[in-house]
Each structure stands twice: as C-alpha cells, then as structure tokens.
C-alpha cells in the first residue's frame, strides 16, 4: 500500500479550487509518509488538468477522458476510482468535500469497504496515520477523527481549510491514461441540462462574505449589501431569518441548515448571531458586525463592531472602500 491519491474535480474543464488545496495537503502528507502523490483526473480536458496538478505538487497523474465521463456522474466516476484503488492499493485518497467529492468518495468507500472522514478542516500524521480535525454538530464542536487501521484512508476536505501550492512550471511527471470501466448502458442516470448560477461568487470559495439578516428588512434591503460585495469582490450571504422570510434564495444561507463558510473577512449586517448562524461562520478570520442592537450576540464573536443603522453604515463603507481601493 503506497501513494497519496487526490481526485481532482472539474466542471466544464475548470478544476475546483479545493482540488488544488487537496493536492497541497497531499504533498504535505506524502512527504511525511515518504510516498508519491498521484492526481486522478477524469472527464474532458483531463490531460491539461493533470499537468496543472503536477505543477501544483503531484508527482504523477492518472487520466481518463471518455464520453461517459463528460459530465460528472456518480456511477462511472466512483467505479473508476474504486477500480483503480482496488488494483493499485493507495494508502490515502483525498478529495474536496463538495457535492461531487462527497458523492464519489462515499460510493468508492463502500466499494472498498474503507473508512471515510468527511469535511476535514485540519489533517496531520501520527505514526503514519491521518488524524483529521472535523467540525461536528454543525460547527458547534470540533472532533479529532482517525482511521486506525486499514487502507485506503479516505478523506474529504472543506474549501479554504488547506493551502494550495502555486504552480511550478518546472515540475514534470508521468501522466498515464486509464480506461473507463462502465459502458453507457450500465449507467443509471443522464445529465440533460445545466443552469449556471448567475455570475455569483460561490460562498464556500469566497475570501470575503457580506451577509444580511433580519435587519435588512426585505428583499430590497440586500441591494446596498450587494453594492458592497461588488466593490470588495465578495459573495453575498444571508441568515436563516432572511431566507425563511423569502427575501433571498436559499443558496445564500450561511449557518446550521445552510452553508459553513470560513472566509478571511465576514461582514454581518443586521444579523443578531443566533448559535445556528454562528456555527456556520465562526471560523472566519476577521468578523465585522454592523447592528443597531448593542446587545446582539454577534458582537461577542465579532472582532470589529459598529452599533448603528446598517442602511447608513453599509453605503458609507462601500464608499470608503471605493475610495481606498480606487474602484
């Protein structure tokens, strides 16, 4: 059993940023174990992405370009991954804890009867085994998680928890082409359409999030927040109260029944900061709270606070950044 594998996720020929973070983690783990890093890239444009994976820290790559793998589907992807793992016996398999990463890793873990640690935000080696740190109870608590015996040790990682390596054009490695394992007529589903989210920055990828809660008062209350987002290149978030009121769609919800985020900067506007919301954003590096109510629990978590009307402060903040950032 040898080798640290990373499944590199792509959509339309673009790698998911968390995949490069996984390659970065794989490099660290592999160096500790004295093993090589292998990137696995399936689908169209796989060969080009394999080169980038090598530049970003992998030693070699396995690629499979086939019509059946054009759009991600659980069965052909998982069967290919678990088939390769059965044949070549890696020590570790990593992937991003995305919708697709959770699918392929969960299914492959069943095929391999392997332990799977999902959604890690930290990982280190102890006696050659991975000890991961995973948020549990929706981020209210943390747990050390490990797979004491057997291989592969499978691990999915959250976005922005590990550092990606900058591409090094001087790195090279072997790229091996492998054959797909499932013919089209054995695959139980077909992707028939895709509707891209409109020009929005994904919350889990965003370095800055501006989020609104009950205090924004209505759908139009998000407009000044969106303007601040535009100046900062930030993603727009929301509390459950705002989503449940129908002011903004569910994709924006941060918190226990929404997304867990960990940006460099989280600006909470008119959000009181219920435990459910805090669970989804408390690991943000710098938290700013803008709220009229000085007693709001969010101020206990925030690094900076402004006790004032968000409809005065947010446009002023947009203007202040516009001037300072020259936008």
């Amino acid at each position: 059993m040898s080798g640290v594998w990373v499944w590199v996720e792509q959509h339309d020929g673009q790698a998911a940023s968390v995949s490069w973070e996984a390659v970065g983690l794989a490099r660290t783990l592999a160096d500790g174990l004295g093993e090589p890093v292998t990137a696995l890239v399936f689908g169209m444009n796989a060969a080009a992405l394999a080169q980038e994976a090598i530049q970003r820290g992998a030693d070699n790559a396995l690629v499979c370009e086939d019509e059946t793998l054009a759009a991600f589907r659980l069965e052909p992807y998982a069967s290919l991954l678990s088939g390769l793992a059965q044949e070549r016996q890696p020590d570790v398999i990593l992937a991003g804890a995305t919708t697709r990463g959770s699918d392929i890793m969960g299914a492959a873990a069943v095929d391999l009867k392997a332990g799977l640690i999902a959604g890690a935000v930290g990982a280190e080696l102890s006696d050659g085994r991975i000890v991961a740190t995973v948020p549990v109870y929706s981020g209210k608590l943390m747990s050390k998680v490990t797979i004491p015996e057997g291989s592969p040790q499978m691990l999915t990682i959250r976005n922005r928890a590990f550092a990606a390596l900058e591409p090094d054009a001087g790195r090279s490695g072997e790229v091996e082409t492998v054959a797909p394992v499932l013919p089209e007529d054995e695959i139980m589903s077909k992707v028939v359409g895709f509707e891209a989210a409109e020009g929005e920055i994904s919350l889990t990828d965003a370095a800055i999030i501006v989020s609104g809660g009950r205090g924004v008062g209505g759908p139009e209350g998000f407009e000044p927040l969106q303007e601040l987002c535009d100046v900062l290149g930030a993603a727009l978030g929301a509390s459950r109260a705002a989503v449940d009121a129908g002011w903004i769609s569910y994709e924006h919800q941060v918190g226990q029944t929404g997304k867990t985020v960990s940006p460099d900067l989280y600006i909470a506007c008119g959000i009181s900061g219920a435990v459910q919301h805090q669970a989804g954003m408390r690991t943000s590096k710098v938290i700013v709270a803008i709220n009229k109510d000085p007693e709001a629990p969010i101020f206990k978590l925030a690094h900076y606070g402004v006790v004032d009307d968000l409809f005065k402060v947010v446009p002023a903040l947009t203007q202040a950044f516009r001037e300072r950032l020259g936008k």
């Binding site: 995305t98 697709r100 992707v191 028939v192 359409g193 895709f194």
Partner: peptide, 13 residues
Amino acid sequence: RLLEEGKEIVEGR
C-alpha cells in the same frame, strides 16, 4: 440538483 456552480437536471431510473 443544486450544485456549487448551478442547477443540474438529471434523468434516471
């Protein structure tokens, strides 16, 4: 299906 980049329509058995 609600994915990171948008909505995917899937048919299956």
